[in-house]
Simulated scan of single mutants.
Amino acid sequence: MPDLSFQVEAVEPLPFAATPLLVFKLRITNAAPEEQIHAVMLRCQIQIETMRRPYNTQDQARLFELFGPPELWGRALQSLLWTHTNVNVPPFTGSSRVDLPVPCTYDFNLATVKYFNALEDGEVPLKLLFSGTVFYMGRGGALQIAQIPWDRETTFRLPVRVWKEMMDLYYPNSAWLCLRKDVFDRLHRYKVRRGLLTWEQALESLLPAGDQEGQP
């Protein structure tokens, strides 16, 4: 029966997709190298292990909304569920490298987006947990089916630079902000009444003068 292990070898943004997409280069290895794998229907859950990296003073200020003051981080820092994804793995023997697509969003209502955006550099520690179904050739050439055990996982440190490059590729010098419809309507009326040409001008006119980044 197949005994699969997983390792992320690299990651890169995929240009020109319909939505922002990271591609994880995933190495799959079977402990029985002569066994023929016909296909794998692979599912993956990705978690951000926030407690497994250091944070400087600027990081702490920008993460105040998520985790509160740094003196509470001993309890506040918990793993964040980032996303679920899946991929169909083609036939292989021994090992194979496949592209694991991870759709991303720039919705600042989501904790994971706030987390990524708050970091300037370094790496984001990830845990990838795998499950799914393996189709393989059993004894006598018969097609067999097995489930991937729930304990199959791997870790990877995603460079913050890669995430920011992806968002700059899809949303250059931009960010997405989702508002309630009634709030948007009020902002729109404010913009029209004052003859402001852009949404940036409307928001800037409402921000206090001398507003400084880094103050919670």
Rank of each mutant, 00 (worst) to 15 (best):
L77F: 08
W73F: 12
G132T: 11
T154K: 02
Q47H: 06
T105E: 13
Q147A: 11
D211F: 14
D59K: 05
V23Q: 09
D99G: 13
Y115I: 04
Q215V: 12
E9Y: 06
V40M: 00
E35R: 15
V183C: 07
Y55R: 07
F184R: 09
M137P: 00
L128S: 01
T93N: 04
E12V: 03
T155W: 09
K25Y: 09
L129K: 08
P216F: 12
H38M: 01
Q47I: 00
L100S: 07
P172C: 13
S205E: 11
L126E: 01
T112L: 02
L179Q: 08
R157Q: 11
G195A: 08
P125I: 01
E35L: 15
F92I: 02
N117L: 02
Q215N: 04
T154Q: 05
N30T: 10
T155A: 12
I148K: 03
L177T: 08
Q36L: 08
Q201D: 15
A17K: 14
G140C: 13
L143K: 10
L187Y: 09
A146V: 05
D182G: 02
A39W: 05
A76E: 14
S5F: 05
E120L: 10
V192R: 06
V183N: 09
P69S: 09
Y55I: 06
S205T: 07
P15E: 14
P13V: 02
P33H: 14
L14G: 03
M41P: 00
D211R: 12
N86F: 06
Q147P: 00
D121P: 00
H84K: 13
L72M: 08
K164R: 15
H188G: 04
P149K: 10
H84W: 12
V192N: 04
L26W: 08
L143M: 12
L21Y: 10
P13Y: 12
Q147H: 07
E34A: 15
R53Q: 07
I148C: 02
Q58F: 11
E34M: 07
F24V: 02
D168T: 07
D182I: 06
L128Y: 05
A39H: 03
I46C: 02
M41L: 02
D211Y: 13
S79N: 14
V40Y: 01
L177H: 10
L66S: 05
L203H: 01
N117C: 02
I46A: 04
Y170I: 04
L203D: 01
D121W: 11
D99L: 13
M51P: 00
T198Y: 06
C178P: 00
F6G: 03
R139Q: 11
A32P: 01
A142W: 11
R52F: 06
L119W: 03
A175I: 12
M51C: 04
D59T: 04
G195L: 04
A31P: 00
F184H: 15
W73K: 09
V23E: 07
R180E: 15
S131R: 14
P149Y: 09
P54Y: 11
F92C: 07
Q78A: 09
W199P: 04
L129T: 09
E213V: 00
F116V: 06
S174G: 07
E35N: 10
F156Y: 15
L22M: 11
M1D: 13
Q78L: 13
T19I: 10
N109I: 03
V124Y: 00
P69T: 10
A209S: 08
P33G: 14
E120W: 08
G138V: 13
F24P: 02
A61H: 08
L143F: 03
T19P: 01
P69Y: 14
Y115L: 05
N56W: 13
A202C: 11
S131D: 15
Q36H: 08
